[in-house]
């Protein structure tokens, strides 16, 4: 389980993250929801150690994060744009011991990618799939995705959603941030809602449907008064 405990972060004058604590279980898909610019990415990057939190701690399975066990898929490519997919894979094999070339090959095939393509030749959707493939291929226990669906074409979205319900993602902990919940309404086990730097709601999606008959979008409407 990923535990985020009492985390605070300030950017210049404004306090972006007031006091955030939540958990994401292994084997579950947790979705961190919040309007744009409410610090969702900062929280993910903070968990990964890419951005220092001012206060608070992050524990993964009770211990400080082990980058062998947790992978991060940012909402933009992490390789120089003149790299080919093959070069990206070569880099990952060199420096990410848990990288599984077969898993990567399977994802490449599933996403119908062409290894010799250069990143700058790919559409935003394909690029997102490459990023995802590179992340998943690390065979991590936990996978953090930052806005995986923002601004990508419908078909790529579908392929990605399909992937999440497939065996590849089974019993991995997934933490997704998004502000467009429609795409993954049925995928999410648990929703964590962020507003003005604080966690305002943390609920099991199916329970809320069962008890209150409300979808995630409904709860969002209540919270954010969309």
């Amino acid at each position: 389980m990923i535990e985020v405990l009492g985390v605070k972060k300030r950017y210049r004058k404004k306090q972006v993250i007031e006091d955030v604590s939540f958990t994401a279980q292994k084997g579950e898909i947790t979705c961190l929801i919040g309007l744009n610019g409410t610090g969702k990415s900062t929280i993910l990057k903070g968990i990964m150690g890419l951005t220092p939190f001012d206060k608070g701690t992050v524990l993964v399975d009770g211990k400080p994060i082990d980058l062998n066990r947790v992978a991060f898929v940012p909402d933009h490519s992490t390789f120089p744009i003149h790299f080919t997919i093959e070069q990206c894979e070569a880099f990952m094999r060199d420096f990410y011991p848990t990288f599984d070339p077969n898993l990567f090959a399977r994802l490449v095939d599933e996403f119908k990618l062409f290894p010799e393509d250069k990143l700058n030749e790919l559409s935003k959707g394909t690029l997102a799939k490459v990023n995802l493939a590179l992340g998943i291929a690390q065979d991590p226990d936990y996978l953090l995705l930052d806005e995986p669906f923002s601004g990508i074409d419908v078909f790529s979205k579908e392929q990605i959603v399909e992937l999440f319900s497939s065996d590849i993602m089974e019993d991995r902990g997934v933490l997704i941030t998004t502000h467009e919940i429609e795409d993954i309404e049925y995928l999410v086990d648990k929703a964590v809602m962020l507003n003005r730097g604080r966690i305002v709601r943390e609920f099991d999606v199916e329970d809320v449907r069962f008890i209150h008959g409300k979808s995630i979008v409904d709860v969002m409407r209540e919270e954010y008064g969309a």
């Binding site: 890419l50 082990d66 980058l67 940012p74 933009h76 992490t78 120089p80 744009i81 011991p97 848990t98």
Partner: peptide, 16 residues
């Protein structure tokens, strides 16, 4: 750090 810190992110994520 070009782009939004692209490659640096990859370097910092290396488990080492």
């Amino acid at each position: 750090f070009q782009g939004r810190g692209t490659f640096m992110m990859r370097l910092l994520l290396m488990p080492q």
